[in-house]
Computed example of a mutant assay.
Amino acid sequence: MIEVGDLRKGMVILYENEPYRVIDVNKHHMAMGRGLVRTKLKNIKTGLVRDVTFSSGDRVPEADLTFRKAQYLYSDGDHYYFMALDDYEQIAFSEEEIGDAKWYLTENLEVDLLMLENNAIGIQLPNVVVLRVVETEPSFKGDTVSGGGKPAVLETGLKITVPFFVETGELVKVDTRTGEYIERA
């Protein structure tokens, strides 16, 4: 059982004996009362999205997920293909099922397949991925005084803010949970 205050985007829980993925979580505190946790849940089996409000302190069961190592192969535009490393089975996910993870997928990236009752329901990315900067503004001497950064486009199309000293063609480490620049690779 997991407390609803600890729910995070992307977690899979059981609600009314059905597996749901948490799409969004908002916590609301009321004066002189218990807080509310408003969630948006998507049924993994049917695709139904529903808004559910819990009282803070409520507990929900976490889905019994297993993980399977896989490697990202390619995308044909509509689907993303992965190969399980234990038996070389190919598994395809639609762009909707992959969601924002598509911005971090590079060829041969190893991920974990999320398995529920022997069915693949999604992927879990590593916390950090290395991506190449394909487009960014040139830096000028003295730019570092103000701190901050400049926009950059990475090889997957992801747009992030990088420090002024990062140039086009360099490899950078990106946190897949927040989408932020960490350091040069």
Rank of each mutant, 00 (worst) to 15 (best):
A101Y: 05
D86N: 13
E18P: 06
V12W: 01
L131T: 06
A152N: 05
A92Y: 10
D51N: 12
L65A: 12
V111M: 00
G169A: 11
P126H: 07
R21V: 15
L114N: 09
L116G: 01
K159D: 02
D175R: 13
V129N: 04
Q90C: 05
V129F: 04
Y81R: 05
D6R: 14
K173L: 05
H28I: 15
N119E: 15
G149R: 09
F164M: 12
V111A: 01
V172I: 15
N127P: 03
G10C: 03
K150I: 08
V145Q: 11
L116M: 03
T161A: 10
Y74A: 09
E96G: 06
G149Y: 11
R132V: 00
I123V: 13
M32F: 15
T136Y: 05
V134N: 08
G122V: 00
Y72D: 02
V166P: 03
I44L: 14
R50Y: 07
L116Y: 14
T144G: 15
T168C: 12
E117I: 05
K102P: 01
V60D: 10
R34H: 09
V133S: 09
E110N: 01
Y20G: 04
K69C: 07
E107C: 07
G149A: 12
A152V: 08
V145M: 13
R34K: 13
E135W: 03
M30C: 06
V22P: 00
S146G: 03
D175V: 06
D78F: 08
G35I: 06
I160F: 02
T136A: 15
R177H: 12
G5P: 06
T106H: 07
S94H: 11
V129C: 04
E62P: 00
D58V: 05
S75D: 02
L36P: 03
G169P: 07
V130T: 10
I98W: 01
D112L: 00
Y15H: 15
V111L: 01
E97K: 14
V166H: 06
G142K: 11
M30S: 08
T176A: 11
K150R: 14
E97N: 10
